[in-house]
Design a protein around this nucleic acid. Structure first.
Lengths: 178, 178, 178, 178
DNA sequence: TTTT
DNA sequence: TTTT
């Protein structure tokens, strides 16, 4: 099709520790459950309502999976950018099922940790630098960091190599106008 | 949850004429099938591959439904901004099913026509203006067009009103797989 | 123009306390400085590099301005959704200047607080409910929550404490459908 | 910074033919002027208002620059995904100036052609496949298509025929501020 | 079921 | 001016 876009942007919390599986040829696949929540006031009753939506996120990216495995825990708040994908499968009883997921694949999409620690625990962790430049803007390159820290490395890095990014002229390495 | 975001952005083509239903209390609900397509080159064979993804879009907004009813036809290219929502329902055989949809509701989201006419026909159409200042960003205020036009208004209108947000009605708890 | 979209999505930290001004007819306008940061590894030297980008965000929305005035402080992490707008102005010396800003206006855009407190202070605050549901998805309607509360009780909170940051409530540890 | 996102999404028309420059070491840089337009009805007078916003887009990506050079012409409708960046520079009179641009760099961002032809001319063109799979989501991987083609045949095309669909108005051929 |  |  001439020109299509399929993008999902989520900011939400991880509902349980991620699951990492492997394909037959050894590549890792991470599965995340992300909750977003919508709140509103019921017009009639005036009650405060809240509805949580659960999103299944699947990550096909070796470096991202490493990061997830090490630092993403239940409770973590993440920024996720991926694409919608619906899979058809057959359950044990032979019934056809459909499952729609948010897929992060290759250089598409992003996963950024938005809180200081993997899950509110407070530990600050360091993130491996991957050789691959797996981030899109708003992705790992612009993600990360750590905080408070404890025992280990005080940093939680999400790095990004690969490209002479930021290779814009020195000219812009300056101040701000406001 | 403190601070979540649930946003889907699609640019794709309408696969068939929209379906407009009504809730028991008369509010319209539009259903759209949007196709996005991903293409790539198979590394091994060098073949050009394409995979189409179909998205079910549900619109709970009276003015938007009017626009859709009048101008959105099979083949139209649209920009869609909505939220992911998964519904659970039971099919005729009693089996539990889940259906994930992109929902445009109230002031949330947007629907913008990206081609000159509802379906490639070429007619220039006017869109109803709503009293509310419904926005600019990716919303209707910045949508569409019109020109060329014919008899009436050479207007370029689109609408969008408010709506009982969060009000996910029973009304749409019907079937899916489209 | 037929179908355009102008959208900016930022997740970053507030660089200084917001400034709230008023138009001649009394409507509030909030100005925010938001920092985003890009990090990468220098290919040659292996050094870790970081570049901060500052964004000027202008909010034309009474309810949002109230929230900002009360809860957004220097250091707060925000999700911002607005539109790009460039203004031309003349400085005191008569020179023409251009300023590009991220504008949140009316029902367009969103501002969501992503950390536990307005600025790391740790107070638990209640957010006034505005009559209007001024949130777009990913906006206030879908933002957070809070608890603890005080007098009002009926509040819809956005920011709150500092402690259980990332403190993913027990409440949602339940029934994840996958 | 711990987790930041800097993303701009535009759907708009190209105001003039792109300019391609080269860095000293030979890498191409493309500059595009993109117009988005906001329309609304004046509450008081009932008049229909329109405001066009011009965006300067800068592309640091060899494959993308090739595509732009060959297929993007004045009038083309594009989907752009990049990051906000403000540069400081000094004009000929020694005055300090700031310029905010939407930057597409490396694997970050996307550029997708949304209309049938590069600029309303109507030619059917083939798009070179780049060695790199530089993105699917909203990126080139999901763009494309075409037909007609020439030599290569196996090309992955983006633009193509079509009359002056999406008729880009004369109106916006004027006064582009850059 | 679209689009190329 | 933020954040790590």
């Amino acid at each position: 099709m001439a020109g299509s876009v399929n993008k999902v942007i989520l900011v939400g919390n991880v509902g349980k520790d991620p699951e990492i599986r492997r394909t037959q040829d050894g590549r890792p696949i991470a599965n995340l459950s992300i909750a977003t929540s919508d709140t509103w006031r019921d017009k009639a009753t005036g009650e405060r309502k809240e509805k949580t939506e659960w999103h299944r996120v699947v990550v096909f990216s070796e470096p991202l999976c490493k990061v997830i495995e090490q630092y993403v825990k239940k409770g973590a708040k993440l920024y996720i950018e991926g694409a919608l994908q619906t899979r058809k499968w057959t359950d044990q009883s032979g019934a056809e099922k459909y499952s729609t997921e948010v897929v992060i694949q290759g250089f598409n999409g992003a996963l950024t940790m938005l809180d200081g620690a993997g899950g509110g625990r407070g530990a600050s962790v360091g993130m491996q630098e991957s050789g691959a430049d797996y981030g899109s803007d708003g992705g790992f390159g612009s993600s990360n960091s750590g905080s408070g820290s404890s025992g280990g490395g005080d940093t939680r890095r999400v790095a990004k190599t690969g490209a002479p990014k930021g290779g814009f002229d020195k000219a812009i390495d300056d101040e701000i106008p406001f």
